[in-house]
Amino acid sequence: MKLRFLSLVAAAILLAACTTKKPETVAAVAAAPPPPPVAAPKPTGPAPDSLEYFNTVVGNLVNFAYDKYDLDAAAQSKLKGQAAWLKQYPARTLTVEGHCDERGTREYNLGLGDRRANAVRQFLVAEGVAANRLKTISYGKERPTCVTSDETCWAKNRRGASTAQ
């Protein structure tokens, strides 16, 4: 009985070894050939005027460097997409939340989150979105998306999060 149990454990370990090993091989192979041609989008995804489309296809998040509120090239490109979407769907409005990582004090982070939300808002206004369609709110470090205390997680939390209505 005991032996049988042990052999089951051994099998499980082997299986585990296989499953952890497998993705590495796949990744190595997948990296080699050029990407396959992109198929024409099928009309099965979210409707282009939907909030889901805004969040997943346009992209509702931009990130910031530590204690900074300037928008890098990636953020600007994302926000240009947000501005184009807002111009295409004039009934939509946006609330921009400014968030910070945990490596700051509460009150300063409220000010920094306000700066970040307004950096996003001002960029969208410069792209031609009417200011009265854009609201801002700072959450400082109160609403992280990730709670691990490392730079990867902190980088995710330093964000401007746009919620379309």
Partner: peptide
């Protein structure tokens, strides 16, 4: 947003931050 309030020593006033267009 208004935030970071604290009373004056006589209790008759409050000092705080007010943010406008990203500036506090």
């Amino acid at each position: 947003m208004t935030y970071a309030p604290r009373f004056s020593p006589d209790g008759n006033g409050v000092a705080f931050s007010a943010a406008l267009n990203g500036n506090s």
